[in-house]
């Protein structure tokens, strides 16, 4: 098996919040990301899905060292990233870049497109001449589908989709190996979403990029990802290759997510039996004991409250964190799922 470019092991990010009043401190710990492990291989796309507030963005920022991780390890090409000094981390950031959710908010309104895209060049290659920088910037603008003539324009003169292309250009200008896309299409219209997603796929093929693609839209993730990781309340519920996740979801939460995707056919949509999840995500200030999903899980039993289920690796390399996944797949799945469970 290939060695992964990025290995994340038991990564945890905790925030301390003070809920006390005036003179009384009352500190609580929010486990925004708790014991998350996964790998990213070269030229592969890992999709990360989950509800709002499940820690997807925090996870992305922790990988880049933009938020301090509380524990665990992040290995980039075999080298540990956590615990690097600010200076050492800065050098690594050339290889790992980030694309943001809010296309215009992530661009400095006082800078021209040329300046924005050139910024990583200025920090990583201060010796590059102005002409070289300009050529590189115009080349990358062409690559992401922007007209190089627009190099002197300002972000407010572009549409949301174009702004996202600028963000992509900025991430790619220094030839990174891994690009973390933090909900890159959530703020865009559906028609533009397709353009941007396809652009990312094209670029990935051309430049042999690894992508971490964070989204809450399952159909978008299905389109881009090779493997998908499902998160809930800061924990990994399931990691599986794309087809298994969508066709044979094992974790009850993954199943609920997949079932909640509307079918774009009103007749089928109406007739479909739907088991939507009850209630809201519990407060991360006070997560449930044992399996964090048990409060909303239709299959929860007493045992679920006792112990945090470990992420179990199945024969096909997929991973799932549920003590009952075999029974559940057996009892509600069709024949195909049955065999899968048997072999797993």
């Amino acid at each position: 098996m290939r060695t992964p470019v990025l290995e994340v092991r038991d990564l945890s990010v905790h925030f301390r919040v003070d809920t006390g009043r005036l003179f009384r401190h009352d500190y609580h710990t929010i486990r925004a990301v708790d014991q998350v492990s996964f790998d990213v291989h070269s030229a592969e796309t890992l999709g990360i899905v989950g509800e709002s507030g499940c820690g997807k963005s925090t996870l992305a920022r922790a990988i880049l060292g933009l938020v301090r991780a509380h524990g665990g390890s992040v290995q980039w090409l075999g080298k540990e990233l956590l615990g690097l000094s600010e200076e050492e981390m800065r050098g690594k950031r050339r290889e790992i870049q980030l694309i943001f959710q809010d296309p215009s908010g992530s661009l400095d309104p006082r800078m021209t497109v040329g300046q924005i895209v050139a910024e990583p060049l200025r920090t990583f290659y201060p010796s590059m001449s102005k002409l070289q920088v300009r050529e590189r910037v115009q080349g990358i603008m062409q690559l992401v589908g922007l007209s190089p003539q627009q190099i002197n324009r300002y972000p407010h003169e572009f549409s949301g989709g174009q702004c996202q292309r600028i963000g992509i250009a900025r991430a790619l200008v220094v030839n990174p190996r891994l690009v973390v896309c933090d909900e890159p299409v959530s703020a865009l219209d559906v028609s533009i979403q397709a353009q941007i997603v396809n652009l990312l796929k094209d670029l990935q093929k051309k430049l042999q990029l690894s992508l971490i693609f964070i989204a809450h839209d399952l159909s978008v993730v299905r389109h881009v990802s090779d493997r998908v990781m499902v998160m809930y309340l800061g924990r990994v519920m399931e990691v599986a290759d794309r087809d298994s996740i969508y066709l044979k979801p094992r974790h009850p939460y993954t199943r609920a997510l997949i079932e909640s995707v509307p079918i774009p056919d009103p007749v089928k949509e109406r007739d479909r039996a739907r088991r939507s999840l009850e209630g809201d995500m519990p407060s991360p200030l006070n997560p449930p004991t044992g399996c964090v999903f048990r409060t909303r899980c239709p299959h929860a039993i007493d045992e679920c409250a006792r112990e945090v289920p470990a992420l179990e690796t199945l024969d096909n390399g997929n991973q799932v964190a549920c003590i009952r996944h075999r029974e559940i797949v057996g009892e509600t799945g069709d024949g195909r799922r049955e065999t899968e469970a048997g072999s797993g």
Partner: peptide
């Protein structure tokens, strides 16, 4: 707290 400041940090700016 704007995104473009975080973007600059991600770009390696001091």
């Amino acid at each position: 707290n704007k995104d473009f400041v975080e973007a600059a940090r991600a770009c390696g700016a001091t």
